[in-house]
Design a protein around this nucleic acid. Structure first.
Lengths: 224, 224
DNA sequence: GCAAAAGTGTTACAATTACACCCATGT
DNA sequence: ACATGGGTGTAATTGTAACACTTTTGC
């Protein structure tokens, strides 16, 4: 019997705003699961790579262009799509929500950011995919400096600290955290301050990728 | 245009014997790359899961039944197979070579263990897959006790030590290593000794999965 | 009795944790 | 002057790394 498996890519895209981690979801315009929420994604075309497919689908369905993207896992249980055999290569992306205006089109009737503790019911096995992505994000930020992908280019140190507190789900010691991160010397301190209305204005910092890669080449690892 | 992508699974299977890490390869019986060496694998059937597909292909082509198996990565560049568009979900497996007699059949003309520093030229993008698997194995043994999957059920401590020395590619301090592993209390010391011809006979140990999972549940991590 | 591998403790050093007060600004 | 968040150092504890001799067996 001729193989008749169809291949899709799906992307779990995380954003961070106002102290919460959110995921970008679409409301499906077509069957199956018409009208229900799902992770954005779609079929891979014959002549495009998997990464090209994810980027294209994200652009089409939600309007965003992703900066940080990595493969998460491939889901292939025979019955995960009720109609046909569909295998999905799931990706994991990080963006700064403030940098994009999301809008629905093609297969999406609506696009929306959902806080990860206020998720709607999801189509297919997308809840499983999302849970795996959350776990991956939580462990990833401890050994690679991916947190910066979620923050503005210039950020006060407290934003980074809050991001880690939120993602790890526990308090962290401010002094020790600051000592550790600044001690790595992968942040540039800017001659710029920002005030949040009340309290002492905070210095702005910028993640320095060059310095980070140099450290990495020397075998010094990021580790929180 | 109708999607015409075919899906395969491939498995990088590692074994450890006589102080060397080896990989199981097959010599291809059919085109493309007929007569060349490749990672075992093949097309996923319509009604089987990806894991079932890998296990079936391994059994068919090499005769082995795998114990430890995890998904590695999905490779999907448009031209990775010169004839058709083929996307491959690669897996990563560990076995004790002594436990199986390998034999070629179906798509394989020959099966053979190759030491990872004496590899032949490989078909498709299998060299890339294999390199990723080696990297994964090296990092994996530092944070999960997968090394035991490569050793006999009962083993002298020095075997474990040699395995780590080999995999990490550097000397490790015998005393500190022993202290650390035994300190975790995930090994059972048996009332049995084994002699390697010369020198003092060694005590045999056994990995205790229950104890390990209990520790893991308590949040205590394996970490070398 | 000697060659060969197994087994074992202590000390120095590095990293991590715990912890509390002053500073700069807006109102 | 007070409320709010930003910024900072030190000491105790813990974990890691370095290091060499004794024991048990086979020949």
């Amino acid at each position: 019997m001729q193989q008749s498996i169809r291949l899709t890519v799906d992307a779990v895209v995380f954003g961070y705003e106002a102290g919460s981690i959110s995921v970008l979801l679409i409301k499906r315009k077509y069957e199956p699961f018409k009208g229900e929420w799902a992770i954005p994604g779609g079929f891979v075309l014959n002549d495009e790579s998997l990464e090209e497919a994810v980027e294209r689908e994200l652009k089409e369905e939600t309007g965003i262009k992703i900066n940080y993207l990595e493969q998460l896992y491939t889901f292939g249980k025979p019955k995960r799509d009720p109609r046909n055999r569909v295998v999905s290569v799931a990706y994991f992306g990080l963006i700064k929500p403030s940098a994009f205006k999301i809008f629905a089109s093609t297969d999406a009737e609506e696009v929306q950011w959902f806080k990860i503790d206020e998720l709607p019911k999801l189509s297919f096995d997308h809840e499983e995919i999302l849970n795996m992505a959350i776990t991956r994000l939580q462990s990833k930020i401890t050994y690679e400096p991916v947190g910066f992908e979620l923050l503005d280019t210039k950020f006060p140190f407290s934003d980074l600290e809050k991001l880690y507190t939120t993602l790890l789900g526990r308090a962290i010691d401010r002094r020790n955290f600051r000592k550790k991160i600044l001690g790595l010397n992968i942040l540039d301190q800017l001659d710029e301050k920002v005030s949040k209305g009340s309290g002492r204005p905070a210095n702005l910092f910028k993640f320095n990728k060059k310095k980070y890669f140099k450290l990495k080449d020397e075998g010094i690892l990021f580790d929180i």
